[in-house]
Amino acid sequence: MGESEAAEVSACGDTSGCEQAAVRAKARVERTRNVMMIVAEGLKKSYTSGGRPLPVLQSLDLSIEADSFVSIVGPSGSGKTTLLGLLAGLDEPTSGRVLLDGEDIFSFSEDGRAAFRAERVGFVFQTFHLLPTLTALENVLVPLELRGEGNEARGSAVSLLERVGLGGRLDHFPSQLSGGEQQRVALARAFSNRPKILFADEPTGNLDHETGASIVEMLEHLNQEANTTLVLVTHDLALAERADRILTLGGGRVVEDRPGEGSG
């Protein structure tokens, strides 16, 4: 990322609106190509509990365009996290399939899906999930090192941490950082491998309102800049509204699919 672009994103981060519209417009033009980044077909998932099958997702169909920002909302137990896990290939469906970037991810072995994630997927978790024994910089380097990019990746990891405002805390361990700072490291880590798809599971769930807001702004900007498809699971309706599209789950199905504020 060039300096000018960084400045642009930074500026937008500070003054809401402004350049965002331009970036979104550019994204929308590209979306007209109608490339579907995520496709789920007949996705079912049930668990066995007490010897009986317990359906969580019931024949769910869904497609998400490339570069779009989609929120998934719904009450507890509606299957949000299960869906996120399946879309990201972290779990296997009882039936159905998921195409990510055109690839049927369940045709891969578990290790194959891991390799796919290393190449094209990023994650942000509610509880940050930084590796407690690694420094901030080392945490950001993990996805890059898993791709076989060693020392040469260090520069981009440092620059990502600088952009989330942690340039001075590269060598701090997670226990030495506040919750907001830890989530910023997690954001830097999520974008470090330049993913095509980013899954975020309640990224502000463990943060106070103000810190959560700044994290969301950062997430949006990094996302738009990198042209990443963002799938966000949240309870926070205000946060969900910032997406291009909002999917509401209930009883293991999509009960509502509507545009969000981001689409306008």
Binding site: Y47, D91, E92, T94, S107, S109, D111, G112, A115
Partner: peptide
């Protein structure tokens, strides 16, 4: 416990 089916043919590609 997970009741995901395991009958699908796997591609041998690995991490």
């Amino acid at each position: 416990s997970d009741s995901g089916h395991k009958t699908r043919q796997r591609r041998t590609i690995g991490a």
